[in-house]
Design a protein around this nucleic acid. Structure first.
Length: 408
RNA sequence: GGAUGGAUUCCCGAGUGGCCAAAGGGGACAGACUGUAAAUCUGCUGCAGAUUGCUUCGGAGGUUCGAAUCCUCCUCCAUCCA
């Protein structure tokens, strides 16, 4: 199976500028392609992960990836898919985030011996001269046409600043620059980037009379059409300090039935034949597929060891048996106790299972809190330090939130 | 620069002097059902030492016994005009 066919079979391809050319290039390892990452946060998230996977797949097929850090474009902010303006980031924040991205990417992509490159568009964008830039590329962009781009249309109602309007131009300029500097001939990106990417191929054609290509990957949407990789508390991060391997595992273990196979296809490196066998699975059998998905992804993002721990912990908590060793825990110290005691509401707050004491109370009043299997009914229930220290002390709130409490 | 309309709790959105911690919906959380899924039903949703108290309706002042609501100034946003 060629790389192109594989991408297609996995449902990763959304739009292409020229199918035949792109197929030819990537199947024969002749592509030098780039994917841009704007440093909007201090960690990569699941959306970026898809892009990294794509990069890895293409790299394995002999193509040369360029990871582009948006140190310059981050100064502007991509308005795509947003109904409000991004808050502006300081230069320091951007630099900090770029560094984090770089660390995380290096774990995943092999940048050694020219197998891949990492560049930062701050290198060329920051020193641009306004008038020069306008004269150089300004004539090649039609405002009329830009305004008809889907990504701006949505913003016509809510308002779009000139700053953000220029994002497309900067991204197009990146592509031109990478083409000139490194012979980069394809740009990949999320499907929401389509119009920005076309800006680049157009600019290269107009400016240099050369052909460059663009291809977007399908956005990972769940069956309700919402972007996956988001939780109520924000994104699912790749940084273990922001989303623990256990939570990461649980996120994927809990995807809806309709979404499991799609996720396995799009996100894992399991061979297609193996995935095709799962097509028959239905009902509770899909739980097995969810376990595979969660384990595979946790292994890819963290490590096999972390994935095993997470799997072990989840089995212990949900299926009974197994080791309770690796479930998430909270450590208490001396100052958390008053006269050697701590009450259940405080405990919930300390364990970050409740955002406030009120919330903790509510959970108890509604019968949602269990300690070592016993339902708590009295808000005033307290525990001594000795009792907690003596053996496994596990609080459960709701169906899926567990915390092991330890002393110091 | 001018005119008009707007900013309400996580989000949308009602509320135009006391009955307002603020309708309704969404989301989140908890319970039932279940497969750690979905759907459905129920409860719940500012904070706290909790039959009470404290802080909240863009910001700062003011009027009033009492302000999300009225007045003044400011900030931001949208629409139309330049």
């Amino acid at each position: 199976m060629t790389i192109f066919d594989e991408l297609k079979a996995r449902g990763l391809i959304a739009q292409l500028t020229d199918e035949e050319e792109i197929k030819e290039l990537i199947n024969n390892g002749k592509a030098t392609f780039y994917i841009g990452f704007d440093p909007t946060a201090d960690s990569l998230h699941v959306g970026h992960f898809m892009a990294l996977c794509l990069m890895k797949r293409l790299q394995m097929a002999g193509n040369k990836p360029i990871a582009l850090l948006g140190g310059g474009t981050g100064m502007i902010g991509d308005p795509t898919g947003r109904s409000d303006m991004r808050s502006m980031m300081t230069e320091e924040t951007i630099q900090f985030n770029c560094d984090r991205f770089q660390e995380q990417m290096s774990k995943f992509i092999d940048f050694s011996e020219g197998k891949a490159m990492m560049v930062n568009n701050a290198d060329w964008l920051m020193n641009l001269n306004y008038i020069e830039l306008l004269r150089e590329i300004g004539p090649h962009f039609s405002v009329n046409r830009m305004l008809t781009a889907e990504c701006y249309k949505q913003r016509m109602e809510k308002g779009l600043s000139f700053l953000e309007f220029n994002y497309m131009i900067m991204q197009s300029y990146d592509f031109l620059e990478l083409y000139k500097r490194h012979g980069c001939n394809i740009q990949f990106g999320g499907d929401d980037q389509w119009s920005n990417m076309l800006g680049g191929t157009d600019l290269i054609r107009r400016k240099l009379g050369k052909d460059a290509y663009a291809m977007t990957i399908t956005l990972l949407l769940n069956s309700e059409g919402k972007k996956m990789g988001k939780t109520q508390s924000g994104a699912v991060w790749l940084d273990p300090n922001k989303t623990s391997p256990f939570d990461f595992y649980q996120y994927w273990r809990n995807v809806g039935d309709e979404d499991v196979l799609k996720c396995i296809r799009m996100l894992t490196f399991l061979p297609m034949e193996e995935i095709d066998k799962m097509n028959e699975w239905e009902g509770s059998q899909l739980n097995e597929a969810k376990d595979i998905l969660a384990f595979e992804l946790t292994t890819l993002v963290h490590s096999e060891e972390e994935a095993s721990k997470a799997r072990e912990a989840s089995k212990a908590l949900f299926a009974g048996g197994g080791s309770l060793e690796n479930i998430p825990k909270t450590e208490l110290n001396e100052s958390d106790f008053e006269d050697g005691m701590i009450d259940i509401v405080s405990l919930l707050v300390k364990a970050e299972m409740a955002g406030s004491r009120s919330e903790g109370r509510r959970a108890i009043e509604q019968g949602g809190v269990t300690v070592n299997g016993d339902k708590i009914t009295d808000l005033k229930t307290s525990y001594t330090k000795e009792l907690i220290a003596k053996e496994e002390f596990i609080i459960k709130k709701g169906k899926k939130n567990f915390k092991k409490i330890e002393v110091q």
